[in-house]
Design a protein around this nucleic acid. Structure first.
Length: 468
RNA sequence: GGUCCUAUCGUCUAGUGGCCCAGGACGUCGCCCUCUCAAGGCGAAAACACGGGUUCGACUCCCGUUAGGACUGCCA
């Protein structure tokens, strides 16, 4: 049998971390088993579903590289089918008309809670007469007995049906509800493995009962543990960035987020680094853990740093240009970009950070940090700038090695250590005391800008000396 | 309240009865390297929730306790 999995988000917000991991695991399971991955938008709650959310979710999926083979299907386009199915159950006596109003139900529920009774629907309309002219909802008649299934992650789970109330499958406006839609959809789309968050475990027996009532084949279920915030409660806005796209803005690479999400709840021995392609080969439901995990930003950042460090500079260029633009400079046409990235990628944790650290390469004039200038831009510390300037401007090839040779010549003839020379130059070129290696910085900056900045610094020193 | 799920270092986890006085990774701390900052190398501190069983032997199996989480909607 061909494996068919699906990701079924409800479009009431962006694609969040938990949803992304569910999508990833479904994708991995399908792709790893030559199966089909389906995207279905669960917008059966017309009131809360929005177009923007749908776009946001699709964007998030694409950014992560999770492509789908079928869909997106929309539940809102399938309302007649759900309704017909519900009516069929009604006809067969497997469901019944409930004339209770939402208000009454709410009151009864509250009363039951206050009195410490389980707030379940009491089934009062179960055997009632049909009352023509009155509006009604359709409730599924939950049979007596037990319902159990073998969960792909958690193992065997059993429920006593007495704890399951007769659920509404068609609202009084005759729109379908979630449990009906999922069952009808999963069955008609031929889903073989339902992989979703374990907040759905309690829905599973209801759905199994519906499958049985319809006579549909029952799929396998696998429930993934939740992702929690630092305070060990369900991840939500309170915990900061929870939207996948927010991480993109922060300069997180999709490979890093995918890798992190995969390792949150799934493991492969002691391995930590996985590309999407490797995950595809190695992923299995059997090695998904049972317990919920806390989302740890530090580790995500570590992975991000790893990918920034190991990717080719040119593959980072588009993101770099985009992040830099957010800070001002448009560097799309700057031929130095790739070289500049290569100087920064070993020391940037995020792409946003890299853009910030790269800013000095793009400024028209350097702004010296006051403390740095005071310490390093002095007559004695910049004494060799003229010689450096000459040496550099005479270089036929402006490469890291060539630049280094100019420095070495000065150091040898003057008996200097590199530190004595490098720090003042660093301040002259970047304005501060922190930057990539001085030779690579000079190469990446280019001959013209380097020489100009060296001259500016000498002028700065001279003017300062003249004032005192 | 009821139902269900879960329980190894601060965090993510390895571990499927003896290989474990518990391994890896992030983070933390120390040392080394060093033109600054990183990166890198080396090292350290740090965990089997508790109580009963089962067994020659339990982190591993069973039961209970405790703790956390989810669900309990005419939301999904």
């Amino acid at each position: 049998m061909i494996i068919r999995t699906r990701f079924a988000p409800s479009p009431t917000g962006h694609l969040h971390i938990g949803g992304a991991r569910t999508a990833l695991f479904n994708w991995l399971y399908a792709r790893g088993n030559n199966g089909t991955f389906i995207l279905r938008v669960e917008d059966s709650d017309v009131q809360r579903s929005t177009e923007e959310s749908i776009t946001a979710i699709l964007d998030g999926m694409r950014w992560l590289g999770l492509d789908w083979d079928e869909g997106p299907y929309y539940q809102s386009e399938r309302f007649t089918e759900y309704k017909e199915r519900a009516l069929w159950l009604l006809e067969k006596g497997l469901a019944y008309r409930c004339y209770c109003t939402a208000d009454e139900l709410e009151k009864r529920r509250k009363k039951a809670m206050d009195e410490g009774r389980p707030p379940m629907y009491d089934g009062r309309c179960r055997e009632g007469e049909e009352r023509p002219g009155l509006s009604f909802a359709v409730r599924f008649r939950v049979p007596e007995g037990e319902t159990s299934f073998v969960d792909g992650v958690k193992g065997e789970i059993t429920f006593d049906n007495s704890a399951i109330e007769d659920l509404v499958i068609l609202r009084s406006d005759h729109t379908p509800t979630y449990n009906l839609c999922v069952v009808v959809d999963d069955a008609s789309m031929g889903i073989t493995e339902v992989i979703r968050g374990d907040d759905h475990i309690n829905n599973t027996p209801k759905q199994i009962l519906l499958y049985r009532a319809f006579g549909f084949p029952i799929p396998e279920f696998a429930h993934l543990p939740m992702i929690l915030g630092e305070d060990r409660t369900r991840l939500s806005k309170r915990h900061g960035a929870t939207s996948v796209m927010a991480y993109k803005e922060l300069g997180i690479l999709p490979e890093a987020l995918v890798n992190y999400l995969a390792r949150l709840g799934w493991s492969h021995g002691d391995d930590e680094i996985f590309t999407l392609a490797e995950l595809r080969k190695k992923f299995s439901l059997a090695s998904v853990g049972k317990s919920s995990g806390v989302f740890n930003k530090e580790k995500l950042l570590w992975l991000n740093q790893h990918y920034i460090k190991t990717k080719s500079p040119s593959s980072l260029a588009d993101i770099f240009i985009c992040q830099t633009k957010k800070l001002g400079p448009d560097v799309a046409d700057d031929s130095r970009v790739v070289k500049i990235i290569s100087t920064l990628q070993g020391r940037s944790v995020t792409m946003a950070e890299m853009a910030e650290e790269a800013l000095f390469y793009f400024k028209d004039t350097v702004e010296y940090e006051e403390k740095a200038a005071r310490k390093f831009l002095t007559p004695e510390k910049t004494g060799h700038f003229q010689r450096l300037l000459t040496g550099l401007s005479e270089l036929p090839e402006f490469t890291e090695e060539a630049v280094e040779s100019v420095f070495t010549a000065i150091m040898e003839s003057e008996g200097l250590k590199l530190g004595k020379l490098a720090q003042p130059v660093r301040v002259a070129l970047t304005g501060g005391v922190v930057s990539p290696g001085i030779f690579e910085t000079i190469e990446a900056m280019g001959k013209d800008m380097t020489i100009r900045r060296l001259r500016d610094a000498m002028k700065f020193v001279a003017e300062k000396a003249a004032l005192t």
